[in-house]
Structures are given as structure tokens and as C-alpha cells.
């Protein structure tokens, strides 16, 4: 039983190989730039470092340049400038070596309609000199029931899981996942999270992009927030949240907020000076306060509103998340 387990446990060999003599940094890029033919600057001097054994999350709104960045790192797009080093090597000189060692799931790929799950995996497996066992991979992404179903009969979530399976079947040391869980139901998402966590446990490194904060907080050791093709913050989810200076967010809607922007800003500024409040902004029709001591701040805020004769329409509080970090950094929500 123990033997059998060892035989089917995926990724073991590659993980061992990876820990021996592999560089400490899986991905390093400096000053990465990409200008498309039509003049769109998608990536604009981006720096990034993903360490071995780490799961790094790229966060950013639509069009921030995540996919472009990832595809450059995957060696699928030519950068217009900057340096890229993957597993200590370069695409120009070591493409074959690198291809054997990375796993890729693109943001959108339509696998062949008429091939079954198993046939598709066999096809992808055949390209790698060493790789995982097909059956183990099918079980890993829980597609056993659909083993002989053709791609065009799979649901969106099943297709996505097959795409991730295709990325894993070559037993990579570095995994690129571009929005692996977009559009999936909670159960499928959690299943894919487990796959990623297991991969990481075996020593693999992961670069993933996502729009989901809970996903980033759950999976990623570090995240990078990018906007307009630049990294605007990097750190562990906790560090980024702590950088807000307060652990709670208070959102206040008043019945008749001041009409002029100047008056609103002045009000926001005076709220920020209250005890327990770290910062305050007017955003999306309400005042958003970052607060480090909720029990001190809340009475003071209510008192201040009453003093100005502002009627409270709604008040809510939540623990600060990466979403708040993002809004604070960019003034925009992550999912528009």
C-alpha cells in the first residue's frame, strides 16, 4: 500500500530534483516592457521575483497587463525590453530545457473538442521526456468520472481542471496559472486550491493571476499588485494589509453628502483626524475609513457626524482585505 502510494504520488521526483542545485529564485524579471504593435503599452517597467517553493499571486484589474507579463515569462511573447530569467536560465538560450520544466495554463485555451480527457492528457504527456502518471493526474483534478468524455461535453469548471491537469502532466517545477479559477463554482475552486497547495508542498513554485482576494490570501505566500503595467506593491498578503495602518475598514453612507468635492474632501480629512482612525477617503458614494481601534473610532465618528447634522444612511465594517489595499493604492476596485 505504501509502495503503491509512493508510485502514484505525483511530482515527487521533480520536487527532489528541484531542491538539489536549483536556483533560489524561480522567476526574476527586471524592467520588463511590452508595447503591442498597435502602440498599447501593456507592461511598463515591471520588476518581479518569485522564489523557489513560493506561490506568487499577480493581482490587478482588467487590462493591467497580467496576462501579457505571464506570457512573456512563459516564453510565448517577445518582450519589448527588460530582462527575464526563469529557473536561472534564459529563453533565448535554453528554451527546450525550460519547456521541460514549466507547466502552463493559459487564460483561455480551447483544447480539441473531439478528444477525451484521457486522450488529451496522453497527448500533452507525450511531449515531455519525464512526466506524471496519467491516472494519477486524472485523480488529482478529480476528473475520473469524465475520463472518457470528450472536451466539448465538459462543463466550464471541468475544462478548467483539465487545463490545469495539462499543465501538471509534465511534472513541472514551475507552474504558471492565468486565472485558473475564474468562473468556477466554490467547490471546484477549492479543489483547484488543494491541487496548487499540494504542488507547492512538493517543492514546486507557482505564479498565478487572479481577481479573487480570498484566493490570493489562501494560496499566495506573496502577492504583487499591478496596475497600468507596473508593480505598485509587493509583499505577503498580511504585510500589504498591515500597510494600510489599520485592520478594520468602516464604510459610512450619509443621507445627503456634501455636493462639492472640496467639501467632501474636507469632511473626509476631518474624519481622518479622529482618534482610532488611520485614514479616510470618499470613494464610490461613501466615506471609507481605515481604522486601527474600532471601539475608539466608532463612537467618535458617530459623534462627529451628529455634530455636523449629517444623517447616517448606512454603516458597515469589515476586516481589511487585499481588495482594500488595492482600492487604497489605485483608487479603483479590483473587479470593475
Amino acid at each position: 500500500m505504501a509502495l503503491e502510494h509512493a508510485a502514484t504520488a505525483p511530482g515527487r521526483s521533480e520536487a527532489l530534483r528541484a531542491s538539489r542545485g536549483a536556483p533560489e529564485v524561480s522567476i526574476r524579471c527586471k524592467g520588463l516592457r511590452k508595447t503591442y504593435e498597435d502602440g498599447v503599452v501593456a507592461v511598463d517597467g515591471l520588476d518581479l521575483e518569485v522564489r523557489r517553493g513560493e506561490c506568487f499571486g499577480l493581482l490587478g484589474p482588467n487590462g493591467a497587463g497580467k496576462t501579457t507579463t505571464v506570457e512573456i515569462l512563459e516564453g510565448l511573447l517577445e518582450p519589448s525590453g527588460g530582462e527575464v530569467e526563469i529557473l536561472g536560465r534564459r529563453w533565448e538560450t535554453d528554451e527546450r530545457w525550460l519547456r521541460e520544466r514549466i507547466g502552463v495554463s493559459l487564460q483561455e485555451t480551447h483544447l480539441p473538442d473531439k478528444l477525451t480527457v484521457r486522450e488529451t492528457l496522453e497527448l500533452f504527456r507525450s511531449f515531455f521526456v519525464e512526466g506524471r502518471d496519467i491516472d494519477a493526474t486524472i485523480d488529482l483534478v478529480a476528473l475520473r468520472e469524465k475520463e472518457h468524455a470528450k472536451f466539448d461535453t465538459l462543463s466550464g469548471g471541468q475544462r478548467q481542471r483539465l487545463a490545469v491537469a495539462c499543465a501538471l502532466v509534465g511534472d513541472p517545477t514551475l507552474l504558471f496559472l492565468d486565472e485558473p479559477t475564474t468562473g468556477l463554482d466554490p467547490q471546484s475552486r477549492r479543489m483547484l486550491w488543494d491541487v496548487v497547495l499540494a504542488f507547492k508542498e512538493q517543492g514546486g513554485s507557482v505564479l498565478l493571476t487572479t481577481h479573487y482576494m480570498d484566493e490570493a490570501e489562501r494560496l499566495c505566500d506573496r502577492v504583487g499588485v499591478i496596475d497600468h503595467g507596473k508593480t505598485i506593491a509587493v509583499g505577503t498578503p498580511k504585510e500589504l494589509i498591515d500597510s494600510l495602518g489599520g485592520s478594520q475598514i468602516v464604510e459610512i453612507e450619509v443621507a445627503r453628502p456634501p455636493a462639492e468635492e472640496a467639501a467632501r474632501d474636507a469632511l473626509a480629512a476631518s474624519l481622518a483626524r479622529l482618534p482610532g482612525v488611520v485614514s479616510s477617503r470618499f470613494h464610490g458614494g461613501r466615506f471609507v475609513l481605515t481604522v486601527d481601534q474600532l471601539h475608539v473610532a466608532l463612537p467618535a465618528v458617530l459623534e462627529a457626524l451628529r455634530a455636523r447634522n449629517l444623517e447616517l444612511a448606512n454603516l458597515s465594517t469589515h476586516r481589511a482585505t487585499l481588495e482594500d489595499v488595492f482600492v487604497t493604492l489605485t483608487g479603483r476596485a479590483l473587479r470593475e
Binding site: E74, G75, R99
Partner: peptide, 13 residues
């Protein structure tokens, strides 16, 4: 169109 060629090129094929 289906980005399948791109996906294949991402392997050592």
C-alpha cells in the same frame, strides 16, 4: 483561433 497552437508551443513539443 482557439489558442491551441500557443498552448502546444508552451510544451517541449
Amino acid at each position: 483561433t482557439k489558442k491551441l497552437i500557443k498552448r502546444l508551443v508552451a510544451t517541449p513539443m
